[in-house]
């Protein structure tokens, strides 16, 4: 016998507390912000906050697609490579067809590769870890074939001014990140596709029995993930003015870390963009803060690794007490 408690009932205070427990990452973010504000005078300045948001936005845009795929119970390791290809195409094709067609084709390459990932996962029955691991290596190879091991330079540097639009300290890139995150949060919470995403990740048998086209559904989410990786690659090419074949290397790992840090479960069925935004910002604050404190690179990595484990332990303690 068990007693039912409505999770969403109760006083506003306990409701807020529960919300925080379920979204522990925001508490963690607040803590890191406080610590860095106290230890560096440069941290809590308008300029630096703007920097953090812009720096975080790149991993953030990748993390949005990754969240969709991970709530489905899958993973996409190829986002870093897709990013590099989109960025190389967007710059390399400009000589032949002009800026916007090149950008468009870059985007399409991401969508196509995402579609391919999804189709392979859905139809072959292989785990997405394997399929997209193949993608990670293969697509990176493709980038090297295309760009010939050299960084591609943009022919006209006005290209790099496209994202130089600011709302106060917030860059276009950061705005785009938040807009996309809010949009996909809305998709998750208010559309059929969003409900399907949770249903598929949570109990795939039930989803299938309920008539949800699981294969088509997964293909859509992998396509979203690939497209967003391309968006990220194009924004990066605009920011740098070059397309390096090694761009975005191991970014897929940072992306997964950000999503997991937010609280989205690797096994699927649970997560949200609110969590992912929290995870992305925490990661960005940590990197930025540690650099402001002139922390050597290897120490930075150690701290980040420790924080990741700590955040997950915290999540376990707060949210899974009753679970066995």
């Amino acid at each position: 016998m068990s007693v039912v408690t409505d999770n969403r009932a109760g006083s506003p205070l306990s409701g807020l507390l529960r919300l925080l427990l379920r979204n522990h990452i925001w508490v963690f973010l607040a803590l890191t912000v406080i610590v860095f504000s106290l230890s560096s005078p440069y941290f809590l300045t308008v300029n630096n906050i703007g920097n953090i948001l812009t720096q975080g936005a790149f991993i953030g845009i990748l993390a949005i697609g990754m969240t969709m795929v991970m709530i489905d119970g899958e993973i996409d390791l190829s986002v870093g490579a897709i990013l590099a290809l989109a960025s190389a195409l967007a710059i390399g094709l400009q000589d032949h067809m002009g800026v916007w067609p090149a950008v468009f084709l870059g985007l399409m390459s991401g969508a196509a590769l995402g579609f391919l990932n999804g189709t392979l996962v859905a139809l072959s029955g292989m785990h997405s870890f394997i399929v997209t691991l193949g993608g990670l290596i293969g697509i990176r190879g493709l980038v090297f074939v295309y760009s010939g091991e050299n960084a591609l330079m943009v022919p006209d540097f006005s290209y790099t001014e496209i994202p130089e639009i600011y709302l106060g300290p917030i860059s276009l890139t950061a705005m785009l990140f938040f807009a996309l995150a809010f949009f996909f949060q809305w998709v998750l919470s208010s559309t059929r596709h969003g409900r399907e995403t949770y249903a598929v990740g949570d109990n795939i048998e039930a989803a299938h029995d309920a008539g949800i086209n699981v294969k088509r559904h997964k293909i859509i989410n992998f396509t979203i993930c690939g497209t967003l990786a391309a968006v990220c690659g194009i924004l990066l090419s605009m920011r740098l003015g070059t397309a390096e074949p090694n761009a975005g290397k191991i970014w897929e790992l940072w992306t997964i870390i950000a999503v997991v840090l937010g609280g989205t479960r690797l096994q699927g069925g649970f997560g949200s963009m609110w969590m992912t935004i929290g995870g992305v910002l925490t990661l960005a604050v940590l990197r930025n803060g540690l650099r402001l404190l002139n922390t050597p690179n290897y120490v930075e990595l150690m701290v980040m690794g420790g924080v990741l484990v700590l955040a997950l332990v915290l999540d376990k303690l707060l949210n899974h007490k009753g679970d066995t």
């Binding site: 208010s190 059929r192 969003g194 409900r195 249903a199």
Partner: peptide, 23 residues
């Protein structure tokens, strides 16, 4: 689906939506 609400589970896969798939 344990993570979805009771209402969402009753109508699992057959949620009432408008033409654009908005719940």
């Amino acid at each position: 689906s344990p993570e979805l609400s009771v209402a969402e589970n009753i109508y699992l896969g057959a949620w009432p939506t408008n033409r654009f798939g908005v719940l």
